[in-house]
């Protein structure tokens, strides 16, 4: 880890001003990704602005039925929140299936949105990596890529977005609220907040330097009351997903009235399964349709030989999630 300075901010404006003034500055929240990557010399800020004291940790229902989750609310707080558990089981489940109890106590929701990929080439400061050092190449494509993405990939980057809860939030079309240096605020649609790697995998979000996430707003999504998060991995716990599915489903007379689907572990960003959703709306809730929807969604997959199994696994996981909900037994 390079030498750094440390300052603790008491209010957002001060923190934002301090970071935006200097490209060598960065916010520090839970630190679970940041301190790790500082030590790996993957992140190299000179100045850290500790924002943990900012009053951004509340979880508040909004008049329009949405839920506003403060950016510094910890994963464990959000998972335990009664409103979250009642309205959005998939969020609570995604959170509790992520990381470990200790990490969930530390990691903030805003930080979760900003967490970096687990690609071992990215994490090794001396390997080529287009995300870390644009133009140096992507050794993962022909390297060890079992955990890498099959959707949203480019010839420049195949790193999987690692978040669980972001998958649920993608399914729910959450909005990410930020504040910039002039105290201006901005609300990003979830899909706009996570950029595909394309030819600029170093650019993961549309944020300006110093722009601070203040909250995540989850809209009212009635179908989400019957939702689940299914996570498939080698180890039973404490591991990133090989494949995950956030799903919500409502039926009317055996026909799908509403559905939300998003995938994790297989894509370069939290992957809302729009094609599958489109196929399913109005369809009969039966396995053949679930399978077809999954096939449609994965039809654009571009796997490597080592992660080709994820294409099949993702489809099976989607079918499992939908069948579980259709059979009336969400986890």
């Amino acid at each position: 880890m390079r030498p750094i300075t440390y300052a603790r901010a008491a209010d957002a404006a001060t923190a934002i001003a301090a970071v935006s003034a200097d490209p060598g500055s960065a916010f520090l929240a839970g630190g679970t990704t940041e301190v790790d990557l500082l030590r790996q010399n993957v992140l190299t800020p000179r100045h850290l602005i500790d924002i943990n004291d900012l009053p951004l940790n509340s979880i508040e229902p909004q008049p329009d039925g949405a839920l506003r989750i403060g950016a510094l609310a910890r994963m464990s707080d959000v998972a335990a929140d009664p409103l979250v558990r009642e309205r959005y089981p998939m969020i609570a489940q995604a959170l509790e299936l992520g990381a470990s109890a200790q990490l969930r106590h530390m990691a903030s929701m805003g930080g979760n949105m900003m967490q970096r990929v687990r690609c071992s080439y990215f994490r090794d400061a001396e390997s080529p990596c287009n995300k870390r050092e644009p133009g140096t190449g992507c050794p993962a494509i022909e390297g060890v890529s079992r955990g890498h993405a099959v959707l949203g990939v480019s010839e420049h980057c195949v790193a999987t977005h690692p978040s669980d809860v972001a998958v649920a939030l993608a399914a729910l079309q959450a909005r990410v609220h930020t504040q910039g240096p002039g105290e201006e605020t901005h609300a990003y649609a979830f899909d706009d907040f996570f950029l595909l790697p394309g030819s600029t995998p170093d650019r993961e979000h549309p944020l300006a330097h110093g722009e601070l996430i203040t909250a995540i707003e989850v809209p009212a999504v009635p179908v989400a009351r019957r939702s689940l998060y299914l996570k498939v991995r080698d180890r039973e716990s404490y591991e990133f997903a090989l494949v995950s599915v956030a799903a919500a489903l409502s039926l009317v007379d055996g026909t799908i009235a509403d559905v939300r689907l998003a995938l994790g572990g297989v894509a370069t960003r939290p992957w809302r399964a729009m094609h599958a959703e489109d196929f399913l709306i109005g369809a009969v809730a039966q396995r053949a349709n679930f399978e077809q929807a999954a096939r449609v969604e994965l039809s654009t997959a571009r796997p490597t030989p080592m992660n080709a199994f994820k294409v099949e696994l993702a489809q099976r996981a989607m079918v499992r999630a939908l069948e579980t909900l259709a059979n009336g037994s969400p986890a």
Binding site: R118, S120, R235, E236, S237, E239, F240
Partner: peptide
């Protein structure tokens, strides 16, 4: 070469 990817059994396994 880390304990996140070299998987040893956790309590739940």
């Amino acid at each position: 070469s880390n304990l996140g990817e070299y998987l040893i059994a956790v309590n739940a396994d």
